[in-house]
Design a protein around this nucleic acid. Structure first.
Length: 796
DNA sequence: CGTATAAAAGCGAGCAACGG
DNA sequence: CCGTTGCTCGCTTTTATACG
């Protein structure tokens, strides 16, 4: 093999004292390390230095080294064989170095170090765990992400710092041992006694495991009795292999016991309990409050970090990743249906909840959010849990009509495309599209900015289509949209036939999705398919599909939305009196802004001018750059020109210069927005935290810069509108009479299915429910609510 | 610009069938 | 027995959609 450089391979030796404060092992030297002959001096090295110093270490007091001491081609470890060597050949070197160093703890950076030092695989699963060192059994290893990973995933920098701090603590104080105490294979009488004893406690924890088919395999329950008994869990099995564990009447009896337990008034602790409680619903009904979901709690504390139980345990405790626990390699997790390992695992989860709960509550209290967690977030979860079970009725006739129309149009477009290019081209295949664009048509290459690969995305197709007069490219875009609409919203893939014809509705004709209250960083709700793969995302349904949704017999759909939802908080927070005055008079700000930027009466704007004004307001609210602003405007112009058959009437595109001018004009008339943005930037730089009028705190963990600032500008308005809607929904659900139910959340809107005779009363109650005085720097504001429609079908 | 989720395709790993 | 081919599975990437 020919080496890229003529210089002989250089070995980058480890550096540091022989009795270091910490040993930190990376993968292999990069370019800069190779040039200087010192580990961790390049871009990763700078981050590494910052990480360890945040954790309280001094670089000169640490031993820094790599598993592989030579630089692989292009820094890619998998290309090491091209130099005629393998990673394994360097293990003896590392072994003797580790054994000569007087320090009992090692930090392993990245997958390679994890694997060589501990034998484990999968750094994102195993980071933060504590393992014996395979190369020196007197040492412990704490694996974490490689500093290079932080460059791409800056949000994880704090996590790596925590892992290094953990290593320091373990070196100083040793590991905090945690023992689990799980009772498995109980008798009926043991179950009965345990449930009775548990129901005496103020709080207890639960967790379920399911078998592949979705049936409940076991349910773990547990509590902390203090004193000599301490923390303990019991796993109640329901499946034994593929058989039932209990006889029929015994199982019924156990479900009865559990139903009583879940109906009591003690705190029920779980992790992602939307899942467990949905599975348990047919057996135990709706559990009584209070509920405590640790995933929701941690999402409040750290909205930008993962919320899995494993991740929380790695941050808060010395408990290792245990999901891969089954020792028998043959019996890997995915094939484990019911077994003692599963029951043990179940018990561990229950006890892990009990360990985490006080720690999370302590942090919530310290951040001033404990009260809203129990008073707002958990009631919100219960409200959405009920809402997702109601679903929305589908009119099968309308659905079929929409499918037929879409299929017809799709077939037509496919035919036209085939005719135009002479063969069958799949527009969804990037590979085929790239070949078509750049090999067959020989068009100038467009590349993905991040991956650098050739792209055939919508933007590219639009550009190429207009510059090179290739209308078939617009057909390809349109085909993609049709397929997407059919597959996502109108039909469901049949796993047996592979065809897209099935409805996404349940047997009763209603479509149900699920709502996730910790699915977003802003505190908005997100929505997706159910755990059983039925239903759909209930929040982002395209307007063209909505008419298939209808109200039940004798009912209508009422849709309420928050008027000028995000403009309102923006105007208040920016302190823009001109915007506020207009909004409080019930008028939108677009024509006001249109008047400013086009020097004319706001009521005399052309349709294009109005759209540009709207885009200007929107763009300025969220800190859009002039270039993207121009692209958006020109997209509008393309659309308008497409509708105009006479080419001499086609409108010219806006230039970057013109767009910059529009934005500058906006700034002259509404300088408050720009100064509000400055405040946000200062706040983010200083504290990396923003607080909403609802008291939601978000720690911004990404790299400071324009992208982060833009996230910041959007955060408070989005979060405020979302939580206004959620609070209203909680109140409205409580206020609504029999015969009226909230069945959908649309970020800033609610859909209510109502008996026809109750429309008037419901409108009054919903208006009451939406009333919420908000305060920002002493100024009071209230987002007005609008009744957007009362219809048999879902439309405006 | 941001916040999301879903589907199709791509791709590697593991494995069976098949041909030499 | 080995190597190729083709299949499934699970994961990742790309591109799409929605909402503001």
């Amino acid at each position: 093999m020919i080496r890229e450089e003529s210089r002989p391979m250089r070995e980058v030796k480890g550096v540091g004292p022989l009795n270091p404060d910490m040993i930190l092992i990376g993968e292999a030297p990069g370019e800069e390390e190779d040039a200087q002959g010192i580990p961790f001096v390049g871009s990763s090295g700078k981050i590494q230095d910052a990480v360890i110093s945040s954790a309280g270490l001094i670089r000169e007091r640490c031993w820094l080294d790599n598993v592989v001491p030579i630089r692989p081609p292009l820094n890619k470890i998998e290309r090491l064989p091209e130099l005629g060597v393998a990673v394994e050949e360097f293990i003896p070197r590392l072994t003797s170095i580790l054994q000569s160093l007087d320090c009992k703890v090692v930090v392993g950076y990245g997958e390679t170090a994890l694997n060589i030092l501990t034998g484990q695989r999968g750094i994102s699963k195993h980071r933060g765990s504590i393992y014996p060192c395979l190369l020196d059994d007197s040492k412990l290893v704490i694996p974490t992400f490689h500093p290079r990973f932080i460059i791409e995933n800056w949000k994880m920098k704090g996590v790596v710092v925590e892992d290094v701090k953990k290593a320091i603590r373990i070196k100083r104080e040793g590991r905090k041992e945690v023992s689990f105490n799980t009772i498995i294979k109980p008798t009926l009488m043991e179950v009965e006694n345990y449930v009775r004893e548990l129901s005496q406690l103020e709080k207890w924890s639960f967790d379920i495991e399911v078998v592949g088919s979705g049936q409940i395999a076991c349910i773990g329950i547990g509590g902390d009795w203090g004193g000599t008994r301490g923390r303990e869990s019991l796993c109640i099995p329901f499946k034994f292999g593929y058989n039932n564990y209990w006889g029929y009447s015994d199982e019924i009896y156990i479900w009865g016991l559990l139903q009583t337990l879940f109906a009591n008034s003690s705190l029920k602790i779980g992790q992602n309990i939307n899942y467990d409680l949905t599975k348990l619903l047919p057996f135990i009904g709706e559990p009584s409050p209070p509920w405590c979901d640790l995933m929701v709690a941690y999402h409040l504390i750290e909205p930008e970090l993962p919320h899995s139980l494993a991740f929380m345990l790695s941050i808060y405790t010395d408990i290792n990743y245990y999901k891969d626990d089954p020792k028998d390699e043959e019996l890997s997790w995915k094939y484990m249906t019911s077994s003692e390992q599963l029951w043990d695992y179940n018990g561990k989860d229950v006890e892990a909840n009990l360990i985490l709960e006080p720690l999370l509550m302590r942090d919530l209290k310290q951040m001033g959010m404990l009260e809203r967690f129990f008073g707002f977030d958990m009631p919100k979860m219960r409200m959405y849990w009920r809402m997702q079970q109601r679903g929305i009725q589908v009119d099968e006739g309308v659905r079929q009509e929409l499918i037929q129309r879409e299929l017809l149009s799709l077939g037509d477009k496919m035919g036209k495309l085939r005719e135009a290019i002479g063969y069958e081209l799949n527009p969804n295949s990037n590979k085929q599209m790239v070949k078509f664009l750049y090999e067959d048509l020989k068009l100038p290459p467009h590349r993905n900015r991040k991956s650098k690969g050739l792209t055939a995305d919508e933007k590219t197709l639009k550009q190429l289509s207009t510059t090179y007069q290739r209308p078939e490219l617009l057909l390809a875009i349109s085909i993609r949209k049709s397929i997407k609409k059919l597959g996502t919203y109108l039909t469901k893939k049949n796993n047996e036939t592979g065809e897209y014809t099935d409805s996404r509705a349940d047997p009763d004709g209603r479509i149900r999705g699920r709502y996730n209250i910790c699915g977003t960083e802003t505190g908005r709700t997100s929505s997706k398919k159910t755990y059983d793969d039925t239903g759909m995302d209930m929040q982002n349904i395209p307007e063209s599909v909505r008419p298939m949704f209808t109200a039940g017999e004798g009912k209508v759909l009422m849709i309420f939305d928050q008027w000028q939802a995000e403009t309102f908080p923006v105007a208040v927070m920016a302190g823009s009196s001109s915007f506020l005055e207009r909004l409080r008079n019930g008028k939108k700000v677009h024509s006001l802004v249109g008047g400013w930027i086009f020097d004319k009466d706001g009521d005399d704007l052309t349709p294009l001018e109005y759209r540009i004004a709207k885009r200007t307001v929107h763009g300025k609210d969220y800190g859009l750059g002039a270039k993207k602003f121009m692209e958006d405007i020109n997209e509008d112009i393309i659309e308008i020109n497409e509708a105009e058959s006479n080419p001499s009437h086609h409108l010219p595109f806006y230039t970057l210069h013109q767009c910059k001018e529009l934005m500058a004009k906006f700034d002259r008339f509404a300088p408050e927005i720009e100064s509000w943005h400055r405040e946000i930037r200062e706040e983010l730089t200083k504290n990396r935290m923003l607080i909403t009028p609802f008291g939601r705190k978000r720690i911004f963990r990404d790299r400071l810069g324009e992208d982060l600032y833009r996230e910041g500008y959007a955060h408070i308005p989005q979060s405020t509108v979302g939580e206004c809607n959620q609070l209203a929904a909680i109140k409205i659900e409580y206020l609504l009479p029999e015969g009226a139910e909230i069945i959908q959340d649309g970020f800033d809107s609610l859909m209510i299915e109502v008996d026809e005779g109750l429309v008037g009363e419901v409108e009054r109650l919903v208006r009451v429910g939406y009333q919420k005085k908000l305060f920002w720097k002493g100024e009071m504001f209230e987002i007005p609510v609008e009744l957007a429609g009362v219809n048999k079908y879902w439309k405006k």
